[in-house]
Amino acid sequence: MSGAPLKRRGAAHALQALRAIVLRETLKFVQQTGRLVSALVRPLLWLAVFAAGFRNVFGVAIVAPYDTYVPYEVYIAPGLVGMVLLFNGMQSSLAMVYDREMGLMRLLLTAPLPRPWLLFSKLCATALLSVLQALVFVAVALLIGTDLPLHPLAAVHALLALAAGALMLGALGLLLSVHIRQLENFAGTMNFVIFPMYFLSSALYPLWKLQESGAEWVYQLARLNPFTHAVEWIRFALYGKDPGLAPWVVLGCGTVFFFLACWGYDPQRGFGGLTRRGDGA
């Protein structure tokens, strides 16, 4: 037999596995109606309550990507979209830990497919759910009167930024799941990831305001935060402006996170080592 048919069957098998994993995660999400509600309640509260309270206190000057003064709720809308991506990416980490404790992850990783492909399939499922939740949030934000640009080309660029940000944060969740050994440790670990990433970013306030207020070390940490670049890419894309280095930072960090997660799930280290230690306990 020639190698070409075998390669085609191998590719078909890999795509079938990708479809199966994405479909499983999607069906599981659809059955958990409270998950979508909880994903939307948090950013909508910030948009409807927090932004309303700070509208006249915290104005945003004319700085890129804006061509005029904008209300505070318009400024934080991309940051709240990023919040949806961030929390769902971390939620995927919890799902990975749960599947590992229940033994489902062990069955998945013993499938006759390259381990990085199986992890990539999980990552694609996470990113898809993140983007869908973010789009639902944007629709609700528009319905309650948030003034966001709706230019078709900018929307396509923003959708690309959404997908890249979702992949990066999903890869981070995948990496974290390597090191979280039990569900009980999840909440503590997330408190050291979610809140620093979110508050040390440009999601809620422009970075120049941090520097202007004299919080230089906070400003520098926010500049180094990959979540900042994910939010800025979405923000600049919405207004059809050049996001600068943000796409490269997001794509680069996502690649590094995914590579480290694959390394951690290798049978000779990371997940494999954790499994052996757990079985011997």
Rank of each mutant, 00 (worst) to 15 (best):
A4Y: 08
K7W: 07
R8I: 08
R8S: 03
R9Y: 13
A11V: 10
A12P: 05
Q16R: 06
R19Y: 11
T26C: 10
G34Y: 03
V37S: 05
V37M: 14
A48W: 04
A51T: 10
A52V: 14
N56V: 03
V57I: 14
F58N: 03
G59R: 07
Y69F: 11
P71H: 06
E73F: 03
V74C: 10
P78D: 15
M83H: 12
V84M: 06
F87C: 11
M90L: 13
M96H: 04
Y98R: 12
G103W: 12
M105G: 06
R106P: 11
A111Y: 00
R115V: 08
P116M: 04
W117Y: 05
L118P: 00
L119T: 02
F120E: 02
L123Y: 05
C124N: 10
T126G: 07
L128W: 08
V136I: 05
V140E: 06
D147G: 03
L148W: 13
L148M: 13
L150P: 05
L150W: 15
A155W: 05
A161T: 00
A161L: 06
A163L: 13
A163G: 03
A164C: 01
A164T: 01
A166P: 11
L175Q: 06
L175H: 00
L176S: 08
S177L: 10
R181Y: 01
R181G: 02
F186D: 05
A187M: 05
T189E: 13
T189Q: 09
M190R: 08
M190F: 04
F192S: 11
F192E: 06
F195R: 07
S201W: 06
A203E: 13
P206A: 04
K209T: 14
V218K: 02
E232N: 15
R235L: 07
R235S: 14
L238E: 08
L238G: 09
L245N: 04
L245V: 10
P247E: 03
G254S: 00
F259D: 06
C262N: 08
W263H: 09
D266N: 12
Q268F: 09
R269W: 08
L274K: 05
D279W: 10
